[in-house]
Design a protein around this nucleic acid. Sequence first.
DNA 1: ACGATATGAATGAATG
DNA 2: CATTCATTCATATCGT
Lengths: 211, 211
Amino acid sequence: MEPQQQQQPPPNNEDGGSGKGGFLCRPSSTRWTPTTDQIRILKDLYYNNGVRSPSAEQIQRISARLRQYGKIEGKNVFYWFQNHKARERQKKRFNVSDVPMQKGLTATAAWKPEESIHNNYSMPNITPGVAASSSSSPGVIPLGQTGNCGYGSLTMEKSFRDCSISSGGNGGVGGSISPNFGWVGVDPYPSSYTDLFDKRRSMEEKYLGRE
Amino acid sequence: MEPQQQQQPPPNNEDGGSGKGGFLCRPSSTRWTPTTDQIRILKDLYYNNGVRSPSAEQIQRISARLRQYGKIEGKNVFYWFQNHKARERQKKRFNVSDVPMQKGLTATAAWKPEESIHNNYSMPNITPGVAASSSSSPGVIPLGQTGNCGYGSLTMEKSFRDCSISSGGNGGVGGSISPNFGWVGVDPYPSSYTDLFDKRRSMEEKYLGRE
DNA sequence: ACGATATGAATGAATG
DNA sequence: CATTCATTCATATCGT
């Protein structure tokens, strides 16, 4: 998001205490640091597949798949979706506004509207097809794209930051043109998946781990 | 020791984007740079009104109001409060050390007033904290500003999380740092936040992704 | 010009 | 699901 993030050092912080002496080095970083690939996939799921609150199984599958790109646990996936969703909402929540002080241009808002990245990998349709078969197909991970992928970097970031419309003291900019592009619209996701995917049977059927 | 985390400084000079545009749009800076007036108001809200974590609506209002003094968005306000609060606390965390003995009259509520920064513009002064308004009076009425959320709640909170566990050299820690971290193992921090007496370990669900 | 510090922004992790 | 906390990155600003 924001400025192209890059994260170069993907897989390496692992094995915190394993192996060697053990405690000398603490668990590396206490917190999960997603690799770019992992993020890419997560976003793909989120935006292109409409996954927003994956169920336990989905989480398992997703994390399993993401594990190829680096260490990851189920909770990471869980939190990621939670946060991503929450933040998207939140942003909308208090950014809504921008009372048009001058005229023209609306939408000056949104700080981080990244939406739907258009995947480069081929994937004719993400529609139900894939989803449908999901549920009970152990082994196959029905995530967006099952194949491996050789796409190069995907940079879907966008540069935001508009030209302010600073008001206040001065007559302000007369221009009132809206230089903002990018984040306009594009927010709709099929949303069908959710339904197909989501069995929503029990709200608490996850396993408790911990200790 | 922390992992090489993340983001890169991308050449984000967006001005180039519009670059040669005709109109000057010199947001230049990628990040919001609060004007003195904005800061003044923010601090006023923070210190004199006890606003620490404004809710969405408040944020909207605040940002709307601050917009008079310059470009600003909801997120800026949001982050400002978050950061301000966090840093204040962070600083305090370190500061707490002294005076291990006698705790009674510890400065209660004395946030270091270093605000009232350069106030070149008008505005008499906001009477920086401490003396004046006493934070602990839950009776202060938030004039004007919609204030409704709790303020003045200078929750003593539990500030712990000191780094003492590191182990390493000397005994202390039992050697059971399980190589398998995740939430299964022990965290670097001793029981901190949550509570020292109640081991509430129920998130919503834990998806343990052990392989 | 740097280096240090202050602070905006982002995000993982938790809690309620 | 909303809110909050902690951490960390990125930069603006200031000092020397």
